[in-house]
Simulated assay, not measured.
Amino acid sequence: MNTMLRIAAATLALAAGWAHGQDKVTFATNWKAQAAHGGFYQAVADGTYRRMGLDVTIQPGGPQVNNRPLLPAGRIDFLMTGNLLHSFDNVKNKVPTVVVAAMFQKDPQALMAHPGQGYDSFDKLKQAPVALIAKDGQFSWWQWLKVRHGFKDEALKPYNYNLGPFLANPRAIQQGYSVAEPIYVQNQGGFKPVVHLLADHGFSTYSTVIEARTETVKSKPELVQRFVDASILGWVNYLYGDRKAANALMIKDNPEMTEAELEASVALMKQQGIVDSGEALTGGIGAMSAARIKDFYEQMVKAGLYQPGEVDLSQVATLQFVNKKVGMDVKARLGGK
């Protein structure tokens, strides 16, 4: 029996044992339901979590909701957070959490510009007279842009998550989540913006990472493995299979979302290689490496966000639950590319 068949047989045997006793798990996200959460909703909708012996409740975040403190406090079991900067801060501040998987190989953070304004090249963006950037971006990746690419603070204007100022000024550039804001610009402004992913220009962080309490990893590694594996399978099925039920669940949790927006966002995730690219092509979705975490940290040190040696990188993430090619057979069966 080959390795994949042994894994499948073991999974089925375990699932049979779990049928009568599901582990209750609360998984919190960092924003309202959207396609960037699709794989997790898929694993609920198609029963993948249930088949892995998990009774999963997804607890959405939002502008008035901060789920981050709930993880170390033990009020949730897993947390979906943004990129590795949050995880570095946790280790620096001795918050007992650890990254167990990275669902996005590319951070969707992007800069958008109007078409026909000479911004087709990323290098030209630093010449824009106005850069609409939110405060958290100004104190994080904007610092990296200054050091790595020569952007200047003189262009900074606050972005308050209102597209009006950007739409009204064709010479402005603005931050955006590459699988969301471009859709809103097209809907509201009637044009397709020029989009430059920071990830394509050296911003090497993983994104949509799953964090767990360090104690959970130590005392319940089998539970963590089941949650990670089921989430990976959820993402494979969401990207390449029938996602209608997952979309319906997200619209229920976030009525502002529409089916058309969700589908447009999925198309962008595929086009940009947000989820299934890089290390995920050989290790499976969720893949991580210590070398890449180190590279990103060193970039952030150069940008002045951290001091050398300030963060113990061995505490940021564990690789024990990923890089196992989970879901790659399902992807092949679904014809995923």
Rank of each mutant, 00 (worst) to 15 (best):
K106E: 10
D107E: 03
D107K: 02
D107I: 01
P108G: 08
A110G: 03
A113C: 12
Y119D: 05
S121A: 15
S121V: 11
F122L: 13
L125I: 10
K126D: 04
P129N: 03
V130Y: 08
V130H: 10
I133E: 01
D136S: 12
D136E: 14
W142F: 15
Q143L: 10
W144H: 09
L145M: 12
K146H: 11
K146W: 08
V147P: 07
H149Y: 11
F151T: 11
K157W: 09
P158C: 09
P158A: 11
Y159F: 15
N160W: 05
N160R: 15
G164D: 14
L167Y: 10
L167A: 12
L167M: 10
A168Q: 15
N169A: 11
R171W: 03
V179D: 00
A180C: 07
E181P: 00
P182T: 02
Q186M: 12
N187D: 15
Q188H: 08
Q188W: 08
G190W: 07
G190E: 12
G190V: 13
G190L: 13
K192D: 15
V195E: 01
F203S: 00
S204L: 09
V209I: 15
V209Y: 01
V217M: 03
S219E: 12
E222Y: 06
L223T: 04
V224A: 00
